[in-house]
Design a protein around this nucleic acid. Structure first.
Lengths: 148, 148
DNA sequence: CGGTATCCACTTAGATACTG
DNA sequence: CAGTATCTAAGTGGATACCG
């Protein structure tokens, strides 16, 4: 499996912790429309559920995929969840659905420009996950050992 | 409400779409241990549910918060979900829990170094969400209008 | 092929009550 | 104060069957 490409020159090291602390130090108390804030928060959590991440990843790697190809590529997904998640992503403007009215029908999915920028923004998180999965595994076994 | 600070110099513009396309063009077919892949994928989706994001955001902004302060800061969260989510984040090594054995008890929560780097990695996604919420809103209303 | 519709087992999270 | 325990309503996703 190919994770989202991360050979972007963006790397996280010790200095990033310092940067992180620096960001936190400042405070930007600015007014934000509650409706917009709600949408932004929804975009943070709602766009990062399991299937959305996997589909975004698959389309990121493959570029364009038919429904059935996508189903085979995203292992474990049911037809219902694939349809449902694709429909939501299409509605949110992340995915483009191209229907070819042939018999049998052919439907191709790909990332929209918006979906591509989302993928780009997500690259750092992939990098973080790839670089820190061991730290998480250690933290878990340590916690479980101490807490029984 | 203060979103995660994003005055990092990292900005997304038209050129980022080009970059995104460039990333996608290359392919890195390398073997990954299935157990590690599963953990990495879990870290992508499981660490981005609603409450985890909100708690990470709150602790990122505030630095250190007591349980009750956190409860007031994360609007709408129930005591149960706050406890549950904090426990999971602590287990995953994202959050540090400091217990002061006084009466009444005092418990302080803060982000671990790992949690801070996660927050830093997430900054781009906040930037993306803040810059593109209107695009999403437009996409939705367009989709709803056409599909009825 | 690419869906939709229905049913149902399971999970989830809020409300409430209680505690060291 | 900072939890735990219990109950329950609502949501979620898989399996299955059917359709244009």
């Amino acid at each position: 499996m190919v994770f989202m490409q991360f050979s972007t020159g963006i790397k996280y090291s010790e200095s990033d912790l310092e940067k992180a602390k620096t960001y936190r130090a400042k405070d930007y108390p600015e007014y934000v429309d509650p409706a917009i804030e709600a949408l932004v928060r929804e975009m943070m959590s709602g766009f990062a559920d399991k299937w959305t991440v996997e589909i975004l990843d698959a389309l990121w790697d493959a570029g364009t995929l038919r429904f059935s190809k996508l189903a085979r590529r995203v292992s474990g997904i049911s037809q219902k969840m694939l349809t449902q998640t694709l429909r939501r992503m299409e509605r949110d403007g992340l995915v483009v659905r191209d229907l070819y009215p042939e018999v049998p029908p052919k439907v191709e999915y790909s990332l929209s420009p918006l979906g591509l920028t989302r993928g780009a923004a997500f690259c750092n998180v992939w990098v973080w996950a790839l670089e820190n999965h061991e730290a998480v595994a250690v933290a878990r076994s340590h916690f479980d050992a101490n807490r029984r």
